[in-house]
Nucleic acid binder design. Structure first.
Lengths: 204, 204
DNA sequence: TTATCCTTCCCCTTAAAAGGGGATTTTAGT
DNA sequence: ACTAAAATCCCCTTTTAAGGGGAAGGATAA
């Protein structure tokens, strides 16, 4: 039996990319997608799926709440959280909400397949626990804070420390500190590489 | 009759992305792809297609030469050049080589469809002439030179001017000049925004 | 409640980038 | 051969960023 997969993400590009990758897996079928919580819930009123790939960040409601609601409605659903690099802090809450695993949005086809196979076999898929999060954390603290991501986005827009400081009503020293943490956490040596790494890992 | 399209690009991601977008067009069929000039030529020994989406940069031979060779072998082929932002200078040569149009690699599905429809109707598709290239050039000279792109990539890797200078065996002043041209041409105010713009426009 | 992390802020120094010029020599296309 | 564009190099100044510290207040979760 081929698992039917429903994709929920507010970025059409992510949906398309994921759909295109899943289509390369013969044993899998994409049964639909939604770009917000409401249309996702709408789908599951009259339809169903085996696996839901669920983004944590949705425009209208948090993926965590959507996860809970979906499982109330369809207890058999297997939900895999879709997350970005910077949102790994939320995976614990997705787990608590009943998700069976998670995937980074920049996962390879192999990783996606592994996750689906594991979940369909009744296992869970939390490679972050041992592989990603912790290994990265051990190395150099890779989880960005909310403020850091906020500053990072402004840096990428071309603002200088003083300009960002003005915008966020803090001192330039503070922004300088954030910039230093960013450079240290992402293990790069300057802002140019920081922006590149951030974009390539879909942090911003 | 549904046009059969052959994709030639050395980046698997571009091939996959293009294939996935083309599959959304009901009136189009992707008949194959190649990631280098040799396998492309090999395909056309025993097979054919209606339209070839041909990258200008191939690992083994220039897209311009491939274009000429293909048209010698299959005069009826309609070739559309696939180019990046920074390679627009080459479109004239692709035109001379017999191509019927060109598409940027970050084109939308609409643009791709327009190009295909136009080409299948016997027209050509050179929107760059009036839309892209000139409008951008008028504004602030947007075409990057080979050297500028080379420097840009090293900047994105986190190298400083002196480091890049060492690597390219030129003086740091030279790299400084290139960096200034890049910032001016892409109309950004610093390196952070430069890298972001470069990545978002697939210049690097 | 304590420990941890986040956010905030400051000091210092040095290195690099930005902003403004100008100028020369290659390279390549007409 | 000529010309336009590209690539090279230099001057100057000011502003930012980077690299090294440290430290205080607040939130929050075990």
């Amino acid at each position: 039996m081929t698992p039917r997969i429903f994709i929920v993400d507010d970025h059409p590009m992510v949906v398309e990319g994921m759909r295109s990758m899943l289509q390369q897996l013969p044993s899998v079928e994409v049964c639909g997608h939604a770009t917000n919580a409401r249309s996702c819930m709408g789908y599951f009123v009259n339809n169903t799926a085996d696996i839901v790939l669920l983004d944590i960040n949705l425009p209208d409601e948090s993926g965590i709440d959507v996860c809970k609601l979906l499982l109330q409605q369809k207890p058999g659903l297997k939900i895999i959280a879709l997350t970005n690099f910077d949102q790994l802090t939320y995976i614990q809450r997705m787990k608590d909400a009943g998700a069976k695993g998670y995937l980074l949005k920049n996962s390879t086809l192999d990783e996606i397949e592994q996750a689906i196979v594991a979940i369909m076999n009744g296992q869970e898929y939390w490679l972050g626990r041992d592989n990603l999060r912790d290994s990265l954390k051990d190395n150099n603290q890779l989880l960005l804070t909310r403020r850091e991501v906020e500053v990072l986005k402004l840096i990428a827009e071309g603002l200088t420390n003083p300009e960002i400081a003005d915008k966020l009503f803090v001192s330039a020293s503070t922004i300088d500190s954030h910039r230093k943490s960013l450079i240290s956490k992402l293990q790069v040596k300057n802002t140019a590489a920081l922006i590149r790494t951030a974009l390539e890992n879909k942090i911003i």
